[in-house]
């Protein structure tokens, strides 16, 4: 009996240590500034095929420096209500805002308004300059871009989304935004991309950027491999 208690205590102490370490690792996960950003309900629309879909809008920002601040209401850098772009910002590392975790409803038309403020360059695979998986026109600063997409050597970031394994049907979304011309600073006017897509089935989706804005082999080191800057989750509920 005494030994059984001893054994039990050992197991409990061991489990407690494991849980403590686990909580430490869990805490490491939330590196984004804000809690999950939810898409806003903005009515319904009639699709070409006659179906009516709920419409949601989602704002997306990409900043050249994750150590900066932005205005939570407009998305512009360092506004009146400055919020850190990233909790663990790193000088020279770009980041997405207002969060890296989004929530959208399943089977809805999601309109994305994306303000891109970062510099850029050439893609590893120029195929990603072309929008895939969008519905309707894709506009850049209000003008529709050609089906072949933007110039693959002038890309700022991409917003590339995939469903978690096993979500049916196959879901793939990719839109590239051009780089901010000139010498981008936080006050320059952003490149505004607008596009829509129809969300898929429920599940945990993943988004990341396919522009090599990191360093090392393929430009996918550092910021590209650090969770929460150029990557994140989308909860489709």
């Amino acid at each position: 009996m005494k030994r059984a208690i001893g054994a039990l205590v050992t197991v409990l102490i061991g489990a407690a240590i494991f849980v403590a370490i686990g909580i430490g690792f869990h805490a490491q996960k939330y590196q984004s500034v804000a809690p999950t950003t939810k898409a806003v309900d903005t009515g319904t629309t009639q699709m070409v095929n006659g179906k009516s879909l709920k419409v949601y809008t989602l704002n997306l920002y990409s900043y050249p420096d994750s150590t900066g601040t932005f205005d939570a209401s407009t998305g512009a850098p360092a506004g009146t209500k400055p919020v850190a772009i990233h909790k663990n910002g790193n000088p020279g590392w770009p980041a997405y805002g207002p969060s890296n975790v989004f929530q959208i409803p399943a089977h809805a038309l999601v309109k994305v308004h994306w303000e891109q403020r970062d510099s850029g360059g050439s893609l590893n695979n120029s195929w990603f300059a072309k929008p895939t998986g969008t519905v309707g026109p894709v506009t850049l600063n209000g003008k529709e871009i050609p089906a072949s997409g933007i110039d693959p050597s002038q890309v700022g970031h991409t917003f590339t989304v995939r469903a978690e394994p096993g979500v049916d049907p196959h879901f793939f979304l990719n839109v590239a935004a051009p780089l901010n011309p000139g010498n981008p600073t936080d006050t320059s006017t952003p490149q505004v991309m607008e596009f829509s897509f129809v969300s898929g089935n429920k599940g945990l989706y993943e988004w990341n950027c396919e522009f090599p804005c990191g360093n090392g082999i393929g430009g996918f080191g550092a910021v590209m491999s650090a969770y929460g800057f150029m990557s994140g989750y989308i909860h489709v509920v």
């Binding site: 996960k29 590196q31 945990l204 989750y233």
Partner: peptide
């Protein structure tokens, strides 16, 4: 769908 650890961790 566990979202307890980030892919990096």
């Amino acid at each position: 769908h566990m979202n307890w650890l980030s892919p990096q961790s």
